[in-house]
């Protein structure tokens, strides 16, 4: 933890040079110039807190507030592209996101408070790389991709492979997350669930499921969890187990048992490893039950 004598949440007790580029190109130039010494600032709800705690002491801050080209939600024929600088509140207010990507909408809606969602961005939530980042499990089950830009051009990484550890991503120091692309999965039943101590808290555990059915048979599914390992994770063994099986309490309970075995939770301020394993089973069951109902009502509707 932090040294309490160094903590002053009244001020930012770190001296840095402030940069406010207006374009993505300028931002990338600055990142290359101060390679490794700079941090990118979006909403500030994570970065500034860490700086107040002296957990991070960058000598350059590159604020992307004026980079307007990072703020958009665009639907095309393949999916939706969300700019990394799009505020969580904007995503929450999008009826189309709510309709077509309900698990993402459910995740965004429970992040922090209205104030936090007015400040925080999708890119910030991902790049902060908290194992509990609420937007990660839904993006993983939707098969979303992170579009990364840097001096060597553009590359695409599946959100599933974007995280390397707590606070660590595949981004090189001179690269930026530009957008998140989510392909349409309109035929899936999907959901996001999480448990917290109080409503405005970071998740003890979170889960997202996307599933496809033929009658009561699970033809395909994806399961991702947050806050139960160093990064958000998928549970391939449970997905494999469920493929081709009929949905029933027993089947889901067995899948839940696999999930509970395959996660790697720790005991921390928010919960214990034992509890996380125990509720992972229940959450798996609940998530699939909701996903199935949603799949059915979509087909009916």
């Amino acid at each position: 933890m932090y040294d309490i004598n160094k903590v002053n949440t009244h001020i930012v007790p770190v001296r840095f040079t402030y940069h406010s580029p207006k374009t993505l190109e300028e931002a990338l130039e600055l990142l290359s110039r101060y390679r490794g010494e700079a941090r990118v600032l979006m909403g500030g709800t994570d970065l500034l807190v860490k700086m107040k705690m002296r957990a991070l002491e960058p000598s350059h801050i590159i604020s992307l507030r004026k980079v307007r080209e990072l703020d958009y939600i665009e639907f095309d024929d393949q999916g939706v592209r969300i700019g990394a600088g799009t505020r969580l509140r904007t995503i929450e207010k999008s009826e189309e996101i709510r309709e077509r990507f309900p698990a993402l909408w459910e995740a965004v809606r429970v992040i922090g408070s209205v104030q936090i969602r007015n400040m925080g961005t999708l890119g910030g939530n991902l790049c902060n790389a908290s194992p509990a980042a609420d937007t990660a499990p839904p993006l993983i089950v939707y098969g979303a991709e992170a579009v990364i830009v840097g001096p060597r051009g553009e590359r695409r990484v599946r959100v599933e492979e974007f995280f390397k550890g707590p606070g660590e991503t595949v981004l090189e120091p001179d690269e930026l997350l530009r957008e998140v692309f989510i392909p349409y999965v309109d035929d899936a039943g999907s959901v996001f669930l999480r448990l917290t101590r109080t409503s405005m808290d970071i998740a003890k555990i979170s889960i997202a499921v996307a599933a496809w059915f033929r009658d009561a048979e699970i033809t395909d599914c994806r399961i991702a969890l947050g806050a139960v390992a160093p990064t958000p994770i998928r549970i391939p063994r449970a997905e494999e187990f469920l493929r081709g099986r009929r949905i029933s309490m027993e089947t889901l309970d067995q899948a839940g048992r696999i999930v509970s075995e395959d996660i790697k939770p720790i005991t921390d301020a928010r919960s214990t490893a034992w509890y996380r394993r125990a509720v992972a089973r229940v959450l798996t069951r609940d998530a699939f039950t909701i996903a199935w109902h949603r799949f059915e009502s979509r087909r009916a509707g």
């Binding site: 807190v49 107040k52 922090g112 936090i116 007015n118 400040m119």
Partner: peptide, 23 residues
């Protein structure tokens, strides 16, 4: 000072934000 309490809420371009976490 860390975005938990909302006492520092102000409107920025008409929307509520936490002034303790805005440079």
């Amino acid at each position: 000072g860390i975005g938990e309490c909302g006492a520092c809420t102000v409107l920025l371009d008409g929307e509520p934000v936490l002034s303790c976490l805005v440079l």
